[in-house]
């Protein structure tokens, strides 16, 4: 079986992103970029499934500018067999990405799409579910365990009340949560080998789609900062403050 892994290019999670000076967008100049952590987890899972002999090929795909080559090279170094870059200079939103991924799905016919539950940039948490709906295939989101069977996949999901297990028929969309696995690091030889692996480039126009941007960002601000409070020197002092100043306990 073939596994498709959509990879989003986002800020490194250690970087605190700020608004730009005119408050029209975030300022990403000089911000270190990376593979979205949830996509790393998705890729790791795909590679493990392949290593266990349950998949033949892992294909990474990213939608964005030429710069996304970087993240696709990382994916190749980690173990993806090949990569596809759908090129566009316009900002894409989840609905657009899902429509684009439909086209790639139709071309590639994967049995499984493994993707992140959310991008740590926009925190949308939408693309996987949208893709599932557009393709009329089932979804299992927020996965913390994935077991591949012949025609289905059993997925344990992290939900607000605890855990839930679903069995979904293949082909299916699975989106990853943090506990699914711990992604590996790329070894130097694999980084070298990745340079020779193919990245197919497709211009968005070739897919016959146009980007709609149905939602526009009109302002980006810093949240109101909390004022730094005080240090207390004992449990008694803390309880006194909580009882008599903040009045939050009795």
């Amino acid at each position: 079986m073939k596994i498709l892994v959509p990879i989003k290019r986002v800020n490194d999670y250690n970087v605190k992103v700020r608004p730009n000076q005119s408050n029209t967008d975030v300022d990403l100049t000089n911000v270190k970029m990376a593979v979205n952590p949830f996509c790393e987890i998705a890729l790791e899972e795909a590679i493990r499934i392949k290593e266990a002999g349950n998949a033949e090929e892992v294909v990474a795909v990213s939608v964005g500018s030429e710069k996304n080559q970087e993240q696709l090279r990382t994916a190749l170094a980690l173990g993806a067999d090949r990569a596809i870059l759908i090129k566009t200079e316009v900002e894409v939103q989840p609905l657009d990405v899902a429509k684009i991924l439909v086209k790639i799905f139709e071309k590639e016919n994967p049995k499984l799409v493994l993707m992140g539950k959310q991008g740590i940039d926009g925190d949308h948490n939408q693309t996987g579910q949208m893709l599932g709906a557009m393709l009329s295939i089932p979804q299992a989101t927020f996965a913390s365990k994935v077991e591949i069977n012949a025609d289905s996949v059993n997925v344990t999901r992290e939900i607000d009340g605890g855990l839930e297990t679903l069995s979904v028929e293949l082909p299916a969309i699975v989106t990853t949560d943090l506990r699914l696995n711990e992604p590996r690091y790329a070894s130097l030889p694999n980084i070298m080998k990745a340079k020779r692996k193919p990245i197919d480039e497709i211009n968005l126009e070739e897919l016959g789609l146009s980007i709609e941007q149905k939602v526009k960002t009109v302002k980006v601000e810093s949240p109101s900062e909390r004022e730094e409070g005080i240090k207390v020197d004992s449990v008694d002092a803390l309880l006194d403050k909580l009882r008599n100043e903040a009045k939050v306990i009795e």
Binding site: N11, R18, V26, I120, D123, K214, K216, T217, E221, S222
Partner: peptide, 13 residues
Amino acid sequence: IYAGACIATVESQ
């Protein structure tokens, strides 16, 4: 957005 580091105002068309 961005782990609450920014607040975006968005307008739907």
